[in-house]
């Protein structure tokens, strides 16, 4: 079991990184990566929501949809679970942990439309993961997201001082540098040892 958890974690963080290899969650990756501290804040919010979403979508799927033979409603059910979850997390944090709520602030509502969150729920179902495996995959996928967005934000902070061709200013150069980070992550594909 420990080897299994380890291989799932390693896969989700490095080998099959959600952003750089699977292309899930590109919008917040490009949108909130201008500064490292906001990038890390977003990363932690995503870890939290991805872990929760994995667990709740697993429960909804195996306790509700499968017994009622309603698997074709998966997409609708999952997106509703995620939207409700994000809303609930927001209210809960506001009441109980105002400091954390303020740190995450505007990023929480944005997470509903983050495809990494819906993606992790759908992939858990596709891979037939159990409850614990789903939780591990969700949390570690979020960690992978955080690692990638932190690296990318650090690169982007330096890019502001670079002398670029006018046409490449802004988004294009950000995409090209994200591509170079993705190329570096290709090196981890040799880690598939389990």
């Amino acid at each position: 079991m420990i080897a299994r958890i380890l291989s799932i974690s390693l896969g989700a963080i490095l080998v099959e990184n959600f952003i750089l290899v699977k292309f899930l969650g590109i919008c917040p990756f490009l949108g909130v990566s201008k500064k490292t501290d906001t990038a890390v804040g977003m990363g932690f919010a995503v870890i939290f929501v991805m872990g929760m979403a994995s667990v709740f979508c697993w429960l909804v799927n195996y306790l509700l949809l499968v017994p009622l033979k309603l698997q074709y409603m998966q997409t609708v059910a999952y997106i509703l679970v995620i939207a409700a979850l994000v809303q609930f997390v927001e209210m809960f944090l506001q009441k109980t942990m105002p400091t954390l709520y303020q740190a995450l602030g505007i990023y929480l509502p944005l997470i509903t439309t983050n495809c990494a969150v819906l993606g992790v729920a759908l992939l858990n179902t596709q891979y037939n993961y159990g409850l614990i495996e789903s939780l591990v995959y969700g949390v570690m996928g979020g960690v992978g997201f955080t690692v990638a967005i932190f690296l990318f934000a650090s690169v982007r902070e330096r890019l502001e001082f670079a002398d670029l061709p006018k046409a490449f200013e802004g988004f294009p150069i950000a995409l090209v540098s994200a591509g170079l980070i993705a190329l570096a992550f290709m090196g981890f594909s040799g880690l598939k040892i389990w």
Binding site: L20, V21, F23, P165, K166, A167, F168, E169, G170, F171, P172, I173, A174, L175, V176, A178, G179, L180, A182, L183, M186
Partner: peptide, 21 residues
């Protein structure tokens, strides 16, 4: 590979900005 996706889209957007400029 994923790198090609980022690179191609980046160059296309750069081309779009170049024509707009």
């Amino acid at each position: 590979l994923p790198f090609g996706g980022f690179l191609t889209l980046g160059c296309l957007i750069a081309f779009m900005q170049w024509t707009a400029n």
